[in-house]
């Protein structure tokens, strides 16, 4: 018996919105980065699942998710570089401390 598509979609949506929630509430920048990764990976699951169940004859979704993974890796690299730079300046990575500029 094959697992129905709905199961996968529920998982990916829960992941996505857990990511959104984490991004809004977390203070530590690395945790924010991980939340964003959750969101991006949820999208990858979506693409793979839609491809596998709805359009099994082609590979467009799979290819797209590979590209999305590669770009997510690039994003993480730049984010970590910036976070390290911040750590060198203010000795912690709390998003709350980045409030020099407001209104």
């Amino acid at each position: 018996m094959e697992t129905p598509m709905m199961y996968y979609i529920v998982i990916s949506l829960v992941m996505f919105f857990a990511g959104v929630y984490g991004f809004m509430t977390r203070k530590n920048m690395l945790m924010m980065l991980i939340s964003i990764e959750l969101m991006l990976n949820a999208v990858d699951i979506n693409f793979a699942v839609f491809n596998r169940f709805l359009f099994p004859g082609q590979m467009e979704g799979m290819i797209f998710s590979i590209f999305a993974i590669a770009i997510a890796a690039a994003e993480t690299a730049i984010a970590i570089a910036i976070i390290i730079n911040i750590y060198r300046h203010i000795r912690n990575i709390d998003a709350d401390n980045l409030d020099d500029m407001k209104y």
Partner: peptide
């Protein structure tokens, strides 16, 4: 404030692209 701006831009950009 360059690093602060960079972080704000990057997180917003990645969030929006997700």
């Amino acid at each position: 404030d360059s690093y602060e701006s960079g972080a704000k831009y990057l997180f917003n950009a990645v969030f929006s692209s997700a």
